[in-house]
């Protein structure tokens, strides 16, 4: 398995990274080094094994639906690069 420059471009688009050509090429070789190792686990028979995540099995963790403390509007906005009238200002999404 290896990844083409075209695929690197596609993945960068999915990852929302505006990469230059030089960075794209350098990442291509780094990704290929890692993907080469990904082959190491392809031959293992894991069909009967459940995927693992948490060390201790947990199911359906719900919290009580109760009002509690939360951030004030000013606190929520304090780190925003642009805000106006108590709201986050976002870049243009719709054209025209």
């Amino acid at each position: 398995m290896s990844i083409s420059l075209e695929e690197v471009r596609h993945v960068a688009r999915l990852a929302r990274l505006d990469l230059g050509e030089a960075e794209m090429m350098s990442l291509q070789s780094e990704l290929n080094a890692l993907i080469g190792h990904f082959e190491d686990i392809q031959h293992l028979d894991v069909s009967a094994i459940d995927p693992a995540s948490h060390a201790v099995t947990m199911h359906n963790v719900w919290s009580e639906d109760l009002p509690g403390e939360c951030l004030t509007r000013a606190e929520a906005l304090q780190n925003a690069p642009v805000s106006k009238a108590g709201l986050f200002v976002v870049p243009t999404i719709l054209e025209g």
Binding site: I3, E7, V8, V11, A12, L14, A15, L17, L27, L31, L34, I35, F38, I41, Q42, L44, V46, I49, D50, P51, A52, S53
Partner: peptide, 26 residues
């Protein structure tokens, strides 16, 4: 971010992420 996006992208999820979680089970 790139390697992770690749491993989760269409067509690769089963071969990479799911399989890796199964190896973790092993």
């Amino acid at each position: 971010i790139m390697i992770g996006t690749y491993a989760l992208s269409a067509g690769y999820y089963d071969a990479y992420y799911l399989r890796a979680q199964q190896v973790r089970g092993l």
